[in-house]
Nucleic acid binder design. Structure first.
Lengths: 207, 207
DNA sequence: TCAGTAAAATAACAAGTGTTATAAACTTGC
DNA sequence: GCAAGTTTATAACACTTGTTATTTTACTGA
């Protein structure tokens, strides 16, 4: 029978092979389900609440399936972080473009993200988790968002677009962080005007 | 003898009174020692590491003295928070005045505090602890620091000093927060120049 | 039907948390 | 020295954490 050990002896012990006598039982709780659950919990309750038992309870299973698909919780947390980073990328690419000045659209999306997804924002841009990506890397998001905006500023005649980006971003990041602590609470319209005017102020100043 | 129960019966049971027969044993671990230890740990390792057993270990005692002088850990944490707020007030009042434009001195001290006392900054200005003071309250520090700076701007001919303060502070808070995540790393001299120029940009723009 | 296997549930372990009961050690006034 | 009271240390309780050993359940191919 096919289940017998083959004549050649290269097979490691218990190696799974095609055509074995008995096939695996269908998995009911997939890696995707675990990750989605943990990510949803991060969004709603924050990263610190993503514990093995709480994820299991919300997924409607025991903790065992988690450790079947992830080696340990660190691996799951890392996966949640990656998913959050990708989520921000999607959020930005879908955010309506309201501003005309460089960095303003990116900034509007960033501040709105902080308001609407405070726990994800905290995870990505405030806390210091191991394996953290830099802010620049997260903003660029594989599509060169920052590079695009900097080129926009260059095309608009800005002599030092990198310096301008830094100034704009200090401003924008400050607003986003204050949103979390309740110290900033302007509407999108007010924020848009603020950013546009700040750009003008920074761009027209001496370099 | 004075230890006898007084004729009047208002005394609650076990009420401590002056002139009792036996006086208390001298306390060896004081509330001040516990608080100082917990505060030092917050500075060095962060608020999350202030646990009963760790404080006790560092103070060289068991956990019992902590719960003699504080009802529970929440009370100690609250006291640490208050001490941190006072510490920032002292830090600001002792910080050398480098800038001339309004809000610049306050901002320089704020950014330096974020760099030098990252865990205290996190506790005071980033995290959302229960009983948190507002940023404005912390900055004012009982001495009207913000009010003073706003008057400075008003005296300098600024039409809307409140708006100017908001803009400057978004900028400053952004720099301080990015310091924690490693996304901002300019020297004091560079920061001073940045703040002075930003003030000029904001102040000369249209209101 | 029935092995055989994989997946899941249960239960446990070892650490760590706040908190408290108990007992020992210490100070103090007589 | 002694009795009384305070302070401290020890140990324990109840809970939560990550992780793993063990048992049970469910599926699959023959």
């Amino acid at each position: 029978m096919a289940a017998q050990a083959p004549a050649s002896g290269f097979r490691k012990r218990r190696r799974r092979m095609k055509g074995m006598v008995h096939m695996a039982r269908k998995e009911t709780i997939t890696m995707q389900m675990i990750l989605d659950t943990a990510f949803a919990m991060t969004r709603e309750e924050g990263f610190a609440n993503v514990t093995a038992r709480k994820v299991a309870a919300r997924a409607g299973c025991s903790t065992q399936p988690i450790f079947r698909v992830y080696k340990n919780m660190d691996e799951l947390w890392q996966a949640v972080y990656e998913k959050a980073a990708a989520f921000f990328g999607d959020y930005y690419s879908l955010y309506p473009r309201m501003g005309r000045a460089p960095f303003v659209n990116l900034g509007m999306a960033y501040i709105a993200f902080a308001r609407e997804e405070e726990h994800l924002f905290e995870l990505l841009f405030v806390n210091s988790v191991p394996g953290k990506k830099s802010m620049y890397e997260l903003l660029n998001g594989g599509e060169g968002n920052v590079v695009y905006e900097i080129n926009l500023a260059k095309a608009a005649g800005c002599a030092d677009p990198g310096d301008l980006f830094m100034k704009m971003w200090l401003f924008i990041h400050g607003a986003a962080c204050m949103t979390l602590t309740g110290d900033y609470d302007l509407s999108d319209v007010q924020t848009l005007e603020l950013l546009e005017r700040s750009y003008q102020a920074f761009a027209s100043g001496k370099q």
